[in-house]
Nucleic acid binder design. Structure first.
Length: 909
RNA sequence: GGGCGGCUAGCUCAGUUGGUUAGAGCGCUUCGUUUACACCGAAGAGGUCAUAGGUUCGAAUCCUAUGCCGCCCACCA
């Protein structure tokens, strides 16, 4: 039944079949029975796969990690260790958000117009599709990972662990929320960590500006409206007399007084030795202000989140209006021009070169802003991570990367983990609505939703409507249905509604819409009615009222009307009695704009003035209130969750232990710390260092013992591959042409740890040829296996010459084996490849096969024919085993021909 | 400004702790269709190991400088 092989190996016919064979065998799972292993108590071997971003398809960089990790896994599996390779995918917060934003842009949409839940849902769908693609690509590349343990960073049990870590950090005082100056991308509308900024050399004019008696140099004249001081070096004699004094200055928007302070940070040699201090828009100035908090005014914001001049602080100043709303560069030009006219500019150095912080994704110049963000106090975490490396609990390959790692950790700064995007793990911090006190990772008892009724014709026409009882119009009904859709996921138990028809209808439509999910009870409540508007009922709002506080003061009322105070009293009475009874239920409260304003006033503990400034609600607008255990500080019940999400690296930094704790029962105990973390050197700080810090912090143990870092994949001209350059080699494309095996081995041959990998199609083709060579050795042997008389072993009766060759060959291949084993144990993949390549091609094929050919001729003694073939077969099988981690498909396929029924992947090395 | 890495055959790179004529792939030249393989075989050309010093019996390898290339970190009003 022996088949004659084709003269060429057909990877397209083979790979899928072989992968299916492996997967069916169950041998990817570490607990699979390995009969030859004998002692399964041997040390397990575990690698957590760096989860690829679920927002695209695999590139060559992924192919590199698949290859290296699969080599390690297959090698140790064959050596008899209980081997786990745990696959996963990363939601990749910001990265995915950016990818998705681009997709939205193409569709003419943008994320700021899409409700949070809907946007999250759409991105979820998108990532699930990418995930599927990637999984099939990983299979195509031969990854022998345990799919039964696959994880996603947004799996609920992973998220739970991330929350617990955050809570622990908070309790230990290592996570804190603070108003600090952070890097803000005006395009992506989010803050970024230090690592996500890219400094770019730029040439900008350096302006020398007159500031009363002093002169100073700046590249950002447009921020001068936000200046709160002038700083000089304390040792600078030129300004000694001015320090501590207020100076009168002339600005484009009028004269001002500003204080001169002394600070070490000022370089006497730069410019004029005097510097303007703009704490709201410059990180250094922010620091200077912190040091002189008592002497000078705090930050004055003059640039908004879109990077436009915002002079609303100068409302009423006509000169300020000229600049308000301008983009930075436009403002700078205009200001330069105006200052020139005023004689405020003394000199311009047009070619001043400095480096500017930009967004690493879009290159937009980052705008420093002061925002409340969550930070991790990293110093204490870093100390442990440093010690782990110094004590050699963690080894680095290449070793030089350890220095880089240590240097970074020793100079680490606090880590901003808040991101203003939707895609990610929402920060589990709730703030008390009445006193802002945070609660971390609390149990949400229930959710309450205040919903305004849908549109009536009165609303549509802009007429004041209080007690006037009119129904919803078509739009209003549609709005109510939409609100119902949004409320659907929340398991609403109860709907309480004002008994006016517009609310009644809204409530009924909502109830109808959410019916499939829950059968909520509806109660009608007279006390939730809109305020009686008295004599102004039915008047055109636009004409009558310019803003809400025109309606009347908190106490005031028109003839026959009700005051806000009265409204508040009755509405709050109703609200609190329902809250008392139903605080554990999810409740929708359908009511009116005025009522909502007063309820919010009460909940947020606002004074009347502030309450009346609350903007009015749109029809069917929903306000979510989360009910938690009473606030410790003020006793309030209602909270709202932080709208930010965690930096992805905060969650992926917990990946090794999170992926194991949420796995099978004993996984964490068995496989943690894992053995090897293999990833690209470009994420040494982003990921590796943070995994060590967070792993040590959360579990008390290092997350892995060895760190192997591979380089970037470059094209044959040593250029980084990028879509825009069009020099990207699609790994699946070349695998399709030359086979996954050829791609894999080409990626490891001639490459050492930490070095960039130069790959070309030529190189891959070269290794495809090697595959063909191997195939033909097998073909040759199998050709000589035919014929019934050759089936049986002929014992020891063959020639002495052959016996000598046998002995020598075996000794030789044993030596090879020793070397290859040694290299693999030391992560020297390229050396192992070189030895194997050489041995198989230039020894096994060129020497062994050639020299044994004559014994295989029909003229030779039968015993010699059999013996010669058996010698070759032994050498081939040993070669196949050693080559298997590198080229799993073809070696398995050949092995299947030689030993049907057995699986090479599980053979003993 | 600080750090790291590289500089070895036309190209891409190996060369593990210093040890005999410095290696591989691709490319090149010549020859060869020998019943596994032309995605092959045989033979061959091609390197003062960036430069200058030094240590050593011996240096691509260790040390010191220099040059160029690349990367990382920090910072700049």
């Amino acid at each position: 039944m022996l088949e004659i092989l084709e003269s060429r190996y057909d990877h397209q016919k083979t790979e899928e079949k072989i992968y299916a064979l492996w997967e069916k065998s169950g041998l990817f799972a570490p607990e699979a029975h390995q009969p030859w292993a004998g002692n399964l108590k041997r040390k397990p071997f575990a690698i957590i796969m760096p989860p690829p971003n679920a927002n695209g398809s695999l590139h060559l960089g992924h192919a590199v990690f698949v290859t290296l990790q699969d080599i390690l896994i297959r090698f140790w599996r064959m050596r008899g260790r209980k081997t786990l390779w745990l696959p996963g995918a990363d939601h990749a917060g910001f990265e995915t958000q950016v990818v998705f934003d681009k997709k939205l842009e193409k569709e003419g949409r943008n994320r700021f117009e899409i409700p949070r839940d809907q946007l999250f849902g759409e991105i979820w769908e998108f990532t699930q599709n990418s995930k599927k693609t990637m999984e099939s690509q990983l299979r195509k590349l031969g990854a022998s990972c345990d799919w039964s343990r696959e994880k996603f960073t947004l799996d609920p049990n992973i998220v739970k662990i991330v929350y617990e870590t955050f809570e622990k950090l908070y309790k230990d005082g290592l996570a804190y929320r603070d108003n600090r100056i952070v890097n803000w991308c005006t395009k992506h509308q989010t803050t970024l960590s230090e690592l996500e900024t890219k400094y770019v050399e730029k040439k900008d004019p350096l302006y020398y500006i007159k500031y009363g008696p002093v002169e100073l140099a700046t590249v950002r004249p447009e921020t001068k409206f936000g200046d709160t001081a002038v700083a000089v070096n304390p040792r600078d004699k030129r300004y000694a007399k001015l320090v501590g004094k207020e100076i009168e200055i002339e600005t484009l928007i009028g004269p001002a007084k500003i204080k001169v302070i002394a600070d070490e940070a000022v370089d006497m040699k730069f410019g004029t030795g005097a510097v303007k201090v703009t704490p709201a828009h410059d990180p250094n100035d922010f620091e200077i202000w912190k040091r002189h908090e008592k002497e000078i005014p705090g930050p004055k914001v003059v640039i908004d989140k879109y990077g436009r001049i915002d002079l609303s602080a100068f409302a009423g100043n006509e000169k300020a209006e000229r600049y308000h709303g301008l983009k930075i560069m436009g403002a700078r030009e205009l200001i330069e021009e105006d200052m020139r006219k005023e004689g405020l500019i003394t000199k311009i150095d047009p070619e001043y070169s400095h480096s500017v912080a930009t967004c690493y994704k879009c290159g937009t110049t980052l705008e420093p802003r002061i925002l409340p963000q969550w930070f991790i106090k990293t110093k204490p975490l870093a100390e442990k991570a440093i010690r782990a490396a110094e004590k050699k609990e963690i080894s680095f390959h290449p070793e030089s990367s350890k220095k880089v790692y240590l240097h970074w950790l020793k100079n680490i700064r606090d880590w901003n983990i808040s991101r203003q995007i939707v895609w990610g793990i929402r920060i589990p911090a709730w703030y008390c609505l009445s006193c802002s006190e945070p609660k971390i990772n609390p149990k949400v008892k229930s959710r309450w939703f205040l919903v305004r009724h849908g549109e009536t014709d009165y609303n549509k026409m802009g007429l004041i409507q209080g007690a006037t009882d009119t129904p919803l119009n078509e739009t209003g009904m549609a709005q109510a249905r939409e609100a119902g859709q949004k409320l659907k996921p929340y398991n609403i138990d109860l709907i309480v509604s004002s008994d006016l028809i517009r609310c009644r209808q809204t409530a009924e439509i909502i109830a109808e819409t959410i019916k499939e999910e829950t059968g909520a009870e509806i109660l009608f409540e007279e006390k939730l009615r809109e305020r009686h508007q008295g004599e102004i009922e039915g008047l055109p709002r636009e004409k009558f009222l310019k803003n809400p506080r025109d309606e009347y003061s908190y106490e005031g009322k028109y003839m026959g009307a009700e005051s806000y105070r009265e409204l508040e009293e009755r509405a709050w009475q109703a609200f609190s009695s329902h809250h008392l009874k139903n605080h554990h239920k999810n409740v929708v409260l359908v009511t009116h704009g005025g009522v909502m304003r007063m309820l919010i006033k009460r909940i947020k503990n606002l004074d009347p003035e502030a309450a009346l400034s609350i903007p009015s609600r749109k029809n069917a607008e929903i306000i979510q209130l989360d009910v938690l255990d009473k606030c410790k500080k003020c006793g309030g019940h209602f909270f709202e969750q932080d709208s930010d999400v965690f930096d992805t690296w905060f969650s992926s930094g917990q990946w090794p232990f999170a992926a194991l704790i949420t796995g099978k029962k004993t996984d964490f105990k068995t496989y943690y710390p894992t053995d090897v973390m293999e990833t690209g050197y470009d994420i040494l700080f982003f990921w590796v260092a943070r995994m060590v810090m967070l792993g040590l912090y959360a579990t008390g143990k290092i997350p892995f013992k060895d760190v192997y870092l591979h380089g970037l994949v470059l094209d044959k001209d040593k250029k980084k591959m990028s879509k825009s350059k069009g020099n990207v080699i699609d790994p699946l494309g070349v695998a399709e042409i030359y086979g996954s095996d050829a791609l894999r081995i080409a990626l490891v041959a001639g490459n050492t740890a930490g070095k960039d990998i130069v790959i070309s199609e030529d190189k891959i083709r070269g290794y495809r040829n090697f595959a063909t060579k191997l195939w033909n050795i097998a073909r040759f042997i199998l050709l000589h296996r035919t014929g019934p008389h050759l089936k049986k072993r002929y014992g020891e009766k063959y020639s002495k010459e052959l016996k000598d060759m046998d002995r020598k060959s075996l000794a030789e291949i044993e030596a090879i084996k020793k070397k290859v084993t040694n290299h693999l144990e030391k992560f020297e993949f390229h050396l192992a490849v070189e030895i194997l390549y050489h041995y198989i091609w230039h020894t096994l094929a060129d020497k062994k096969v050639e020299s044994l050919k004559r014994f295989l001729q029909p003229a030779s003694a039968l015993e010699d024919q059999v013996a010669a073939r058996e010698i070759l077969e032994k050498l081939l099988i040993e070669s196949l085993k050693m080559l298997h981690p590198f080229m799993p498909f073809i070696t398995e396929e050949i092995y299947q021909k030689l030993n049907p029924g057995k699986i090479l992947m599980a053979e003993k090395w």
